[in-house]
Amino acid sequence: MVIFMEIQLVSFIKVHKGHKGAFLNALKGIEEIVRVQSITGDYDILIEINVAESEDLVSIFESIEKIPGLMEFQSHFVLEEWQK
């Protein structure tokens, strides 16, 4: 029996100066990225990734790493989510 389990990640991205607009556009092309927010602080962009299997993350991370302008990339797994 196949058990489907959603895997959710939040990732913080820092990009080189002048690349943010193009970087955001490139992120729109990755279907598994369900939310993208521009933020202030140490990082420039916050993304939320939803996938069915962890193997899917490999290709998503490869796609993100290929986008020109990437400086730093930090991810956190979401264990639990409480919404109002």
């Binding site: 389990m5 959603e6 895997i7 959710q8 955001l24 992120l27 729109k28 279907e31 990225i33 369900v34 939310r35 993208v36 927010q37 521009s38 933020i39 202030t40 962009i45 916050l46 939320e48 939803n50 962890s54 797994f77 979401v78 264990l79 639990e80 989510e81 919404q83």
Partner: peptide, 20 residues
């Protein structure tokens, strides 16, 4: 958060707690 650039997230009522 300065701008919300993409919002394709599953709405609240469809999302269960997930563990990995």
């Amino acid at each position: 958060v300065t701008t919300q650039d993409i919002d394709r997230a599953v709405p609240d009522m469809e999302k269960g707690s997930t563990v990995s």
